[in-house]
Amino acid sequence: MSEKKIKNIFINGPISADFIAKSIANHSSKTDIGGHSIFLGQIRQDQIDGKSISAIEYTAFEELALTKMHEIREKIFDKYPLSCLHIHHSLGKINIGEICLFVFTSSKHRKPAIDACNELVERIKTELPIWGKEIFADDTHQWKENS
Rank of each mutant, 00 (worst) to 15 (best):
F19Q: 13
I20Y: 07
I20K: 07
A21Y: 09
S23K: 13
S23C: 14
I24D: 02
A25Y: 12
H27S: 14
H27L: 15
S29I: 12
S29V: 14
S29F: 13
K30N: 12
K30W: 06
D32L: 12
D32Q: 14
I33G: 02
I33Q: 03
G34F: 05
G35W: 04
G35L: 07
G35R: 03
H36W: 14
S37N: 10
I38Y: 06
F39G: 00
F39T: 01
L40D: 01
G41M: 06
G41K: 06
G41C: 07
Q42W: 09
Q42D: 09
Q42T: 15
R44W: 01
Q45P: 03
Q47E: 15
Q47W: 09
G50S: 09
A55P: 02
E57D: 11
T59P: 05
F61S: 05
F61L: 11
E62Q: 15
E62D: 09
E63V: 08
E63Q: 13
L64W: 04
A65I: 05
A65C: 10
I72F: 04
K75F: 02
I76A: 08
I76R: 04
I76H: 03
D78A: 11
K79V: 02
Y80T: 00
C84V: 02
C84W: 10
C84N: 14
C84D: 15
L85R: 05
I87N: 03
I87F: 09
H89N: 04
H89D: 02
S90E: 00
S90Q: 05
